[in-house]
Design a protein around this nucleic acid. Structure first.
Lengths: 254, 254
DNA sequence: ACTTTTTGTGACGCTTCGTCATATGATGCC
DNA sequence: GGCATCATATGACGAAGCGTCACAAAAAGT
């Protein structure tokens, strides 16, 4: 009989609910407000059950991170089918990441917390492995595109490790801008700058510097970015625009 | 009589000791091991006194952040007197930041924690203001160099905001690489890459992309970086090399 | 109907934060 | 010196969260 399957399915569903509740708590009441007791209360089970799923609070955070990464991976997959040069497709991926960050504002804090060594240290091994696997998969998109660009002759690298140098740079810039660069303090200092547009512009400059063709003087990648939003993520980009009203504000001097 | 002055001086000294103890605890026992009771014990005062200096644990973290930023600022000031083009001086500043990160491994975690909104929210207003002031001062170095480059004709910007776009990009890349990019997980994924050299290389590519002259094809900025280490930070770079032995390992395939 | 296994509970011990009533000592005034 | 006043310092205490575990309830098996 299918009892066994039903059991595991119910278990998986409960795990999803825990993650969802955790996410909501984090968004509404911030890190300090996310407590295991509260999670237990919201899912209408006792605390012991929560601990059956996640061995510690850090493990839960880790689980939330994995969920986010999986979502981003989904966005990447959709962005990857965009037609165009390797560099256009790289742009599409970056736009996808940006979009996901905007749609999931809670991700900001989760990412922040989960990159702390102290957090990672207390998470369970399998969960940590999953996060690492997903991260590697995300980076694989960058690597594959770079390799393809080299094959096409659009990119020339000085040695085998230079590909990872490039990938690392792109990742740092993207992740750095979305986490550190989004912090309230920094935002105040850069209050006259549209940080989303800045990131895209800077990444293009970075790619130009590495000589990834066609260079941005030959192609309007901001146009590509807008096309990706319209063609690949029509609903999502609408939703993002609604959520974040000041993204609509023109930033020109009055 | 100088009683009053002695008092304030002793108070300031004690605050320094609290910060130093906090730093040591964080390094040795990581974030969870940093408790206010432990700090009190180590400075040989009661907990109430610690709370007279720092209104909360987060406030202490914030204070430690300010201390780090002040140190980096000192490094920047020293690096800024390096003779050369604006781009060489920018390189010098980046090298200074890299060096400081290497010399103060505890900074990694502090930075990480203090960029969380939850942390900032619980810190005292004056301390937060100081951190923001110092951050702005650090960024001012970048802005000033960019402005000077524009005046010299070494850099051409499309509009007034583009300068801050560039500065933001450089900052994200630097800070992103030193915090996110240093995480154990990422390091494993990029295990064959020298991340320090990668950051320097990527930043130069970024500057090339923005057309900051002289371009890296015209000048060996890795050489500039090494010169800065030798000429401006001779002792510090030696100390960094000792502390971090695997920085010496050549990363070429065997 | 009775045993075994799985699933679920929440009181409990422990740790930490941050406070506050109280103690201790310094300073000023007569 | 004796007394009042203020600053400085203490650590016991309440509150809150984490994670555990002995026990309870329910389900599966026989």
């Amino acid at each position: 009989m299918g009892t066994r399957e039903r059991r595991t399915r119910e278990r998986a569903e409960r795990e999803q609910r825990i993650l969802a509740v955790g996410r909501r708590l984090l968004l509404e009441r911030s890190f300090a407000g996310l407590t295991m007791d509260r999670v237990a209360e919201k899912i209408e089970y006792s605390k012991g059950i929560v601990y059956k799923h996640f061995t510690s609070k850090e493990d839960l955070i880790c689980g939330m991170t994995a969920e986010f990464l999986a979502e981003i991976l989904g966005f990447f997959r959709r962005a990857a089918v965009f037609h165009g040069s390797t560099r256009e497709r790289l742009t599409a991926i970056v736009v996808a990441a940006q979009l996901h960050f905007k749609l999931a504002p809670d991700q900001f804090e989760v990412q922040q917390i989960s990159t702390m060594d102290a957090t990672t240290a207390r998470a369970s091994a399998p969960r940590k492995a999953e996060v690492e696997r997903l991260t590697a998969q995300l980076l694989e998109f960058f690597r594959a595109l770079a390799d393809e660009a080299v094959r096409d002759g659009d990119l020339t690298l000085s040695s085998a490790t230079a590909r990872d140098t490039l990938v690392h740079g792109a990742w740092c810039m993207l992740a750095g801008a979305e986490t550190l660069g989004r912090h309230e303090r920094l935002r105040r200092i850069f209050k006259h700058t549209d940080l989303d547009a800045a990131l895209r512009r800077n990444l293009q400059a970075f790619l130009d510097g590495h000589g990834w063709k066609p260079l941005s003087r030959r192609h309007d990648y901001e146009d590509t970015a807008q096309r990706v939003l319209r063609e690949v993520f029509p609903q999502e980009s609408l939703r993002a625009a609604e959520t974040d009203p000041d993204a609509r504000q023109a930033r020109h001097a009055p």
